[in-house]
């Protein structure tokens, strides 16, 4: 993609305008995410860069929104100070972790079955298993709202965890089946002929090899639950505050800059998760002997 030395003026113009265009698109993709970082340290109660903030005046900077988010209420804080954010963090982690564990175990076992050469109705089963990822969330939420209320599962954490598990499993199934392609089944035979039973073979031979796929699937399932707001809105009660639900409420009712502090934390979390998944993907490719060119 380098410009050769003999390029004509026209080619040069074309090349540089193409590069500028691409640069702008990357800017459009990535810059918005980082705008929130400095703004969360502003003392202004609105979502804007005040002139004082741009002149780097110390009074324009403050940590008060972070303190509010953490539930530390100082004397200088005039707005209502509640502990809803920390409650949201707690609930999000409870629901997220519980549904991740469920989704990962169900999804991994199913992926093992799907990768067997003798699987009947493979296409149909795959379509059903992936459907929670495909059906628009609003339809899923509507269906669950009707059905779970008949079973008394709305307004409960159990209902929420079940719903999020269903939404997370497709990601586990997809990532683990992807890791299992090119899996050498002779390893299983070798292990069995050496006298290991099914469980031992699974934990000692299969698991270490598919672990990268399982972990990235689990991370996908976790972030799906952690970021999910539509289903929570429809089947959760006031008690089931999660981070996205609290942000939703914050955006609709009390537009408070605490949202920006929380957003900053979430951006940092997403960077951490992305790094982990990328490292795992490379490790998995190395393990399976797929060269990344």
């Amino acid at each position: 993609m380098n410009l050769p030395k003999y390029a004509t003026t026209g080619q040069r113009i074309g090349y540089y305008s193409f590069m500028t265009y691409c640069g702008l698109v990357f800017f459009f993709l990535i810059a918005p995410i980082f705008i929130v970082l400095p703004l969360s340290f502003s003392s202004s109660s609105f979502f804007e860069f005040t002139p004082e903030f741009m002149r780097f005046e110390p009074e324009a900077y403050s940590l008060k929104w972070y303190k509010q988010m953490l539930g530390i209420c100082g004397v200088d804080v005039t707005t209502v100070c509640t502990n809803k954010w920390m409650l949201g963090v707690r609930n999000s982690f409870i629901v997220g972790i519980a549904s991740t564990i469920l989704a990962t175990s169900l999804g991994t076992i199913a992926a093992l079955g799907l990768s067997r050469p003798h699987m009947p109705f493979k296409a149909l089963i795959m379509a059903i298993l992936i459907s929670p990822m495909i059906v628009p969330l609003i339809i899923t939420a509507a269906g669950m709202f009707f059905f779970y209320s008949q079973l008394g599962l709305t307004h409960t954490f159990t209902g929420l965890i079940l719903a999020h598990t269903a939404l997370g499993t497709p990601f586990v199934v997809i990532t683990v089946t992807a890791t299992l392609t090119g899996f050498d089944t002779n390893l299983i035979r070798a292990s069995q002929s050496l006298g290991a039973d099914t469980l031992r073979t699974f934990f000692k031979v299969i698991m270490p090899l598919i672990l990268p796929g399982v972990i990235s699937g689990a991370l996908f399932a976790f972030i799906t639950s952690f970021d999910e707001v539509v289903v929570v809105l429809f089947i959760g009660s006031v008690e089931q505050i999660t981070i996205p639900k609290q942000m939703w409420a914050g955006l609709r009712q009390e537009i408070s800059p605490v949202i920006l502090s929380m957003a900053t934390c979430l951006v940092l979390l997403s960077i951490a998760l992305l790094t982990t998944v990328e490292l795992l993907r490379r490790r998995s490719e190395r393990l399976r002997g797929i060269k990344s060119q």
Binding site: P32, I33, I35, V36, L39, F47, E48, I223, F226, D227, V229, P244, M247, W248, L251, I259, L260, A263, L266, V267, S270, I271, L273, L274, V277
Partner: peptide, 14 residues
Amino acid sequence: WTSLLVRIVVWMVI
């Protein structure tokens, strides 16, 4: 990988 709501908040700021 970034939360959908975070991205919406950011766009509101912009």
